[in-house]
Design a protein around this nucleic acid. Structure first.
Lengths: 352, 352
DNA sequence: TTGAAAGCGCTAACAT
DNA sequence: ATGTTAGCGCTTTCAA
């Protein structure tokens, strides 16, 4: 029935060595004669041996699994983020374990602190989740285990962090609209906040708003409640698009929109279309993120393409460093902080 | 340093009971006095006890983890599929472990057979992956462990299977185009195959082509090499869109396109736009899948909406049944097979 | 209702 | 270079 799994002992016995030697041989540890290793590997192959990871983990305390926590799978941004992180994790010889919080306010915290897996099953965690306010004692939650926060945006990072180019990216996006001749630009983000408040923001969307508003102000354009709408996803983006169309058709003619993420930008374009406004002819639209969908949508979406591969690399570098520190018992270094690169990708939605 | 995790023994000692009683109390097993259970739970809470899953798994052979294998994260179809499966898995009290194969030809097989996790870490597996030809001895690969194949499309299922309504859905889609007045309909799928060959197909796209072609033939429309193009994703969809536009502008006027998935449909619309053809004005387009993106794209995409929640429910029902069988030592029942429901969702892309 | 003993399969530490 | 011992933390089994 093949129901009885072959264990290391079986392999060792069959190969005529001790379990320990078999273990060392299989894991490529030094101190095993070439011929012995060969023999063990062949035997394992022949017996169709598969290591029992639970036993291995229990004993060694290592799983090689990296926990990746995001808000959801089914959005253009997260699906791409997850893929980039999972690919890089795999490339480094770790196994990615992806979990979604579904935006549950404390699911991120939950995933980190209370999950029976965390800290026992996982060798490291990478988290990008809302509801993880900067006031959360993340470092404490993770009790010194390797943790990378994506886009934590803390002024003084309390844990290893990889940030998006929020402020610079948003500024570049708005500047692009201005260069394309837009004179009356709307911002779709988390709603209006005065500049004074933005001065000390520590959220991704606050920073994006800061960058966007500074670009407007530098160009002598208006930044006030009348130009800022509220949406983070396509559903609300549609509402914003309609609102903008109404304003434009009602005598307040907007000619450009900066959306603080691609996801909402798709909705805005959709909402504008609902009211008969076409992009880019009647209104130019630009987003941030560089989601895959932007390249095959109609119109294709101009965007701030953030380098998610770089993000994944940075994240795993940080994890690897912490694991290394722990392995060699080195002193823990201060939290690292990196910001990933971006480039402006001009497409149809802002064409002249 | 809080580095020493509190173990079950600590809790038991603190509560003044044996580890066994503590274990039973924590797991809600019967045969523990109310007051005892209460005391143990409180102690565990107070000591911030978290069970060590690796130990638990090693001993019990159960993990409560369901392995979900798909081709990739970053496509409109898979991101939605994964979300539906993960949500339902969570809802049932299991933990979803999602893995992507990146379309590697034998990655699916690999994931099932050779991964050190499979069959030891996982209590069940749900797989939707290409490269899993129907000729693979799946049942054998999984050695009697709970496995559900998504859209396996085997005539006689060798393992528990949940199929998409491939043939019926495709037929309904093409019929919809016909009802909307299309007279010259193109099919974007896996390329042309003669009807004789389609009679005994066991692939999802073969079935979709069969459904689509039969709808054409029933309506007295052409089904031959000239109307079938090849694309499964947006990239190739764009190429198809351009090709269709060229043909149409060159004297072979198509007026409708059925795409065998939404993903390629987005590309087709994009490719048509590249050549100045607009949807639905110049050409009507319909897809299959009901991806989220279809509802906020411009134009919104008419599609065959498949019920992914139902798919997830069926899948987990099947897993649960197998786990149950194993637990009670019941005889294994024959492979189950279900087909999920669908409905036609008409949107802009096929509007008159 | 509770507890004692045994061991899941592996690997770190320590012999040889 | 190889082997022996011990034990990771839990749960199954069986005894009290």
């Amino acid at each position: 029935m093949g129901n009885v799994r072959t264990s290391l002992r079986d392999v060792a016995a069959e190969a005529g060595v001790s379990p320990m030697t078999a273990s060392n041989a299989l894991r490529g540890k030094p101190g095993v004669r070439r011929s012995t290793r060969q023999k063990v590997l062949e035997t394992a192959e022949r017996l169709n041996y598969r290591i029992n990871l639970t036993a291995s983990m229990l004993k060694s305390g290592r799983s090689n699994i990296i926990h990746i926590i995001v808000n959801e799978f089914d959005s253009p941004f997260y699906s791409k983020l997850v893929q980039a992180l999972a690919d890089e994790t795999t490339k480094r010889g770790f196994t990615p374990f992806v979990e979604q919080t579904r935006y549950s306010p404390d699911a991120g915290k939950q995933a980190l602190a209370s999950s029976p897996f965390s800290g026992q099953l996982f060798d490291g965690e990478i988290i990008h989740a809302s509801g993880l306010g900067t006031n959360l004692p993340l470092a404490k939650l993770n009790a010194g285990r390797p943790l990378v926060l994506i886009d934590g945006c803390e002024e003084t990072p309390s844990v290893d962090t990889v940030n998006f180019p929020n402020e610079e990216g948003a500024r570049a996006a708005v500047q692009h609209l201005i260069e394309r001749g837009c004179k009356h630009i709307a911002i779709v983000a988390g709603g209006y906040a005065p500049r004074s408040e933005l001065a000390r923001t520590e959220t991704a969307y606050g920073l994006r708003l800061r960058g966007a508003s500074s670009a407007l102000i530098d160009a002598g354009l208006a930044y006030d409640e009348s130009v800022v709408l509220r949406a983070f996803d396509s559903e609300n983006g549609i509402v914003c698009g309609r609102e903008l169309a109404e304003k434009t058709q009602g005598g307040i003619p907007f000619d450009g929109v900066f959306c603080a993420n691609d996801y909402s930008a798709f909705g805005v374009i959709r909402g504008l279309a609902d009211c008969g406004l076409r992009v880019p002819d009647d209104m130019k639209v630009i987003g941030i993120d560089g989601t895959s969908f932007g390249s095959y949508a109609t119109p294709t979406l101009s965007t701030i393409q953030v380098d998610l591969n770089q993000l994944a690399q940075f994240s795993l570098d940080m994890i690897a460093r912490r694991i290394d520190e722990r392995d060699r018992g080195t002193e823990q270094q201060a939290p690292a902080c990196a910001t990933i690169g971006y480039r402006l990708t001009e497409r149809e939605s802002t064409r002249p």
